[in-house]
Design a protein around this nucleic acid. Structure first.
Lengths: 221, 221
DNA sequence: AATCCGGCTAACCTTTCGGTCAATGGCAAC
DNA sequence: GTTGCCATTGACCGAAAGGTTAGCCGGATT
């Protein structure tokens, strides 16, 4: 049960009472859709949860699907975090930071991540726009990884000599694997720190220690 | 126009005509459930698809849920393949074979894998038994990996010195990552051969060539 | 004061859902 | 032929689904 969503309201907009009820509906729908799914959630339930009449929901949203995509949109908001590339860090530290950010994000938003994943797997039609956005996020993340790995290789701090694209793809696969492991096994099965260390070892060499180390030799057989 | 579809029957069991219809129902339900999901599939649809009356379905299966778990059971059958450990191979070849088997299986059963994944993510209650079985399969696979890696380390053919459990966990994560990549991006995004090579490189050293089996290395996309 | 309109609701509509039931055809045993 | 069971069916049921409609209410506009 993720708390933590207080929608910032711009004091500039006067916030009519209509928006209040609309918000209440969205909040209720968010909870229900995320926990039970689209088809298993009825409009009457949403109405009850939001403490409004069912008709009011249809006044705000033409159809159930429209409400659903509105909910998707709102649920997606926390996903647009910007990974501020701190220029001070070297590539290794940046990559480690990126990986850690991914895992921490998944941990903090597990319920909505699970929901999105299930939704995209299941209802391709209903969640086309969702898939688009998630895919965009995903490839943005991948692009950052590719670039960082490329730079690291040029600087010679990277042990792997595979094409940055392949390395990033493999790395992302590992992350996604950890994601689903997390979703099924729960928190105890995955520790971000350990994963970061493993990734670092894979990419940079055998040293598991801190990121300050320079020039890891190829591990070789 | 009833029976006649060629279902292999064990000559030992006489196969009543009831079993025929039951089979037809299961076949139809399998298709519909897998393509649309549980809640989006109605019993009337199943009946129409199976060309029987709705009442007959309820004669064979007490409830919709009972039909569903029967379908799950049947869909799970191809998952129980035995990885015949060919004692002739060395550990490296065995591990590569195992990894390849995983990926090939996913490719060949993509639709049901997707279905199971979505189902388990979404409807924990409905698919408890499913989760149990999948989990059992999964940990069996993991156990084989752990043992193989352990033996490989003892023999000295393994480059990684991480605990076999950790190595296997990471490897499995990578595989699962490839799985979901495959489910979303489609066939073109993932090539098993390349992945096997990458895994081999990671575990055993830099040599990309496989030890015993022939592998036509396709260039990465 | 009369009007208008955005926000809101109770009641209602149609369709479909999962599930039941009484009735029936076919077929083997007697 | 009759009995009796298995397999099968069409008709039916109450509940709940998504969605509509007519109308109420209260504040701003004239």
């Amino acid at each position: 049960m993720g708390a933590s969503q207080a929608k910032q309201l711009n004091s500039s907009e006067p916030r009519t009472q209509s928006q209040d009820s609309r918000d209440e509906i969205l909040k209720a729908a968010m909870q229900l859709f995320a926990n039970r799914g689209f088809h298993e959630t009825s409009m009457s339930e949403v109405a009850r949860e939001a403490q409004v009449s069912k008709a009011l929901i249809f006044w705000h949203f033409k159809t159930k699907e429209e409400l659903f995509v509105a909910v998707l949109k709102r649920l997606l908001e926390p996903y647009f975090i910007d990974f501020a590339e701190e220029a001070a860090m070297d590539e290794r530290a940046q990559i480690e930071k990126l990986v850690e950010a991914y895992l921490l994000f998944v941990r903090d938003n597990a319920s909505s991540v699970r929901f999105f994943l299930a939704q995209m797997l299941h209802d391709e039609r209903l969640s086309e726009s969702l898939s688009d956005q998630v895919l965009k996020l995903y490839s943005g993340y991948r692009a950052m990884l590719v670039e960082l790995i490329g730079r690291a290789q040029q600087k010679g701090i990277c042990a792997r000599r595979t094409a940055p694209e392949s390395a990033a793809a493999f790395l992302l696969s590992a992350l996604n694997g950890l994601l689903i492991e997390y979703l099924f096994m729960g928190a105890n099965a995955v520790d971000p720190e350990g994963a970061v260390a493993m990734v670092a070892e894979w990419l940079f060499g055998i040293l598991p220690g801190s990121s300050s180390t320079e020039g890891g030799g190829a591990p070789a057989a």
